[in-house]
């Protein structure tokens, strides 16, 4: 952020953002420097996506952009105009029935503190959709962008694999 001094007088550049978040239309004026993560958390109150590093290194902020997984901390908010954003809050069914992967996370104790879990769920869903859940090693590889400091990796692999097996 070396160039920030020049913005001191006239403030930031702002642009309009129009997208959907978990199916709800959103219209908002955003600072071009704001990340999708900060807009979700601080402006829209969608706090399922977590901040673990703000540098694309931990995966806690993972959301889906038109069905693809992205780290929302490295995604400029302005860039998602026209896109559908899905966060962990948008995964369960309309009556709150859990997605099979959420249930599998509970059944396999794929979490401890729960802080990385929203990101793990979003990555896990993508891992399944991408067809990268064929065996344990493949899941380990394709889930390695999501750190879990509690070390719940074994449960995470088991949960993703269980859903992959159900889907076959």
């Amino acid at each position: 952020m070396a160039a920030t001094a020049s913005t001191a007088a006239g403030s930031a550049h702002e642009l309009d953002l129009a997208c959907t978040v978990n199916g709800e239309p959103v219209r908002l004026r955003v600072d071009t420097r704001e990340s999708l993560l900060d807009v979700l958390r601080e402006r829209l109150g969608v706090t399922g996506p977590k901040k673990g590093c703000d540098h694309g290194q931990c995966g806690a902020c993972t959301v889906h952009l038109d069905g693809r997984r992205v780290v929302s901390c490295l995604t400029p908010a302005v860039q998602v105009t026209g896109a559908d954003v899905t966060t962990v809050e948008g995964v369960a069914g309309p009556d709150g029935e859990l997605h099979p992967l959420q249930q599998a996370f509970i059944d396999h104790d794929a979490l401890q503190c729960g802080y990385c879990t929203p990101g793990q769920i979003m990555s896990g869903l993508a891992c399944l959709a991408e067809g990268h859940a064929g065996d344990d090693d493949e899941v380990r590889e394709y889930m390695s962008g999501n750190l879990c400091r509690c070390g719940a990796y074994a449960g995470i692999v088991a949960a993703v694999r269980a859903v992959a097996e159900q889907g076959r």
Partner: peptide, 27 residues
């Protein structure tokens, strides 16, 4: 014996300290 607060954690409903955004919040 499954973790009793797991549901909140897999749905994003568990609110951690800095998930709060009260009115008039300054950063």
């Amino acid at each position: 014996t499954r973790r009793v607060d797991a549901r909140e954690k897999v749905t994003g409903a568990a609110l951690y300290a800095t998930d709060l955004h009260p009115d008039q919040l300054a950063h």
